Simulated assay, not measured.
Amino acid sequence: MMTDPDQAAGRRRRILVTGASSGLGAALARHHAAPGRTLLLWARDPARLEAVAADCRRAGATAQVRSLDLADSAAALAALAAEEAGGAIDLAILAAGLGDVRGRGRTVEEAVAVVRLGLVNFVTPGAMAAELAERMAARGRGDIVLIGSAAAAHSLPFAAAYAGSKAGLARLADALRVAVAPRGVRVLLVEPGPFDTPGGRLVPAPAWLTRRPEWVAARIARACERGQPRLTLPRFFAALRWVDRLLPRRARDRLLRALAPHQADAP
């Protein structure tokens, strides 16, 4: 049975947002800032994180900050346990992530980049989501939002580690959703396209495909209230996913390789 959006919004008093210092994470933190809510804001950069927290406090929310690097999975899980000890998390938005493309003169990405993207984009958020899912299932309620990427549906030769890590997160999100839905817990996978941010501009994209983080944040919140299992933005990328599947392999491979030189020169 679909939960009433107003009821769901009302019970979300304690909200965790990772990657909250900039981009989509910051936009999501500001979107959810309201009187009576406690925002648990995580990111690596303490100065930028505190600036976002100040905006949330001006909106009437209580904002608590935590500076950490999700490449340290054990530290992230310990921090999550500490946050839960202070009160049950009603909504967890795992928005932290890293993007990358192969460097100039390389055929593929460096091994160290593959490790770091795997940890930050998949291993740590996946472990956090699993821990939260278990805790929320015991309580019989809760929402988890995992921020993937539209790139997860494509074998990008210039960003194999990024696409691969996000593909792993997508599969895990769907598996968790199936597991915890009978226990009153909802899992939403978000697959956004490129953002109009300094980081997002490292990978050029047509202006008509680029979205402001605030626009995406509002639609994520709406999808979460509705109990949607998946949200792809813009919708064009949902259609592109089917094109990727239906193209003959050789044609698809040529198309992906044609994209690579343009991306590979990103600084």
Rank of each mutant, 00 (worst) to 15 (best):
Met1Tyr: 10
Ala8Tyr: 00
Ala8Glu: 01
Gly10Glu: 11
Arg12Phe: 01
Arg14Ser: 14
Arg14Asn: 10
Thr18His: 10
Ala20His: 11
Ser22Pro: 07
Gly23Cys: 09
Gly23Ser: 08
Gly25His: 09
Ala26Asn: 04
Ala26Glu: 08
Ala29Asn: 06
Arg30His: 10
Ala33Trp: 05
Ala34Leu: 09
Pro35Cys: 06
Ala43Thr: 06
Arg44Glu: 04
Arg44Phe: 02
Pro46Ile: 02
Ala53Pro: 06
Ala53Phe: 02
Ala54His: 04
Ala54Gln: 12
Ala54Trp: 03
Arg57Asp: 05
Arg58Leu: 13
Ala59Leu: 13
Val65His: 00
Ala71Met: 06
Asp72Lys: 07
Ala74Thr: 14
Ala76Gly: 08
Leu77Val: 10
Leu77Lys: 12
Leu77Cys: 13
Ala79Met: 11
Ala81Asp: 14
Glu83His: 15
Glu84Gly: 12
Gly86Ser: 13
Ala88Tyr: 02
Ala88Gln: 09
Ile89Asn: 01
Ala92Ser: 08
Ala92Asp: 08
Leu94Tyr: 02
Ala95His: 07
Asp100Gln: 14
Asp100Arg: 14
Gly103Asn: 11
Gly105Phe: 08
Thr107Phe: 13
Ala113Trp: 06
Leu117Tyr: 08
Gly118Asp: 05
Val120Asp: 03
Asn121Gly: 13
Phe122Thr: 12
Val123Ile: 14
Val123Ala: 14
Pro125Gly: 12
Pro125Ile: 07
Gly126Thr: 13
Met128Asn: 05
Met128Gln: 15
Met128Lys: 07
Ala129Asp: 03
Ala129His: 06
Leu132Asp: 06
Glu134Lys: 14
Met136Tyr: 00
Ile144Gly: 01
Leu146His: 04
Leu146Trp: 05
Ala150Gly: 14
Ala151His: 08
Ala153Trp: 04
Ala159Tyr: 06
Ala160Glu: 05
Ala163Tyr: 00
Gly164Met: 12
Ser165Leu: 09
Ser165Arg: 10
Ser165Ile: 04
Lys166His: 07
Leu169Val: 07
Ala170Met: 11
Leu172Ser: 04
Asp174His: 15
Arg177His: 04
Arg186Asn: 02
Leu189Arg: 03
Leu189Trp: 00
Leu189Pro: 04
Val190Asp: 00
Pro194Asp: 01
Asp196Gly: 08
Pro198Gln: 07
Pro198Ala: 03
Gly199Tyr: 02
Leu202Val: 14
Ala205Cys: 02
Pro206Thr: 01
Leu209Asn: 00
Leu209Ile: 12
Thr210Cys: 13
Pro213Val: 06
Pro213Lys: 05
Trp215Ala: 15
Val216Trp: 03
Ala217Tyr: 01
Ala217Asn: 05
Ala217Met: 00
Arg219Asp: 01
Ile220Tyr: 03
Ile220Gln: 11
Arg222Ile: 01
Arg222Cys: 08
Gly227Thr: 00
Gly227Asp: 00
Leu233Ser: 06
Leu233Asn: 02
Leu233Lys: 00
Leu240Arg: 09
Trp242Leu: 15
Trp242Phe: 14
Arg245Lys: 14
Arg252Asp: 00
Asp253Val: 15
Arg257Ile: 03
Ala258Cys: 09
Leu259Asp: 03
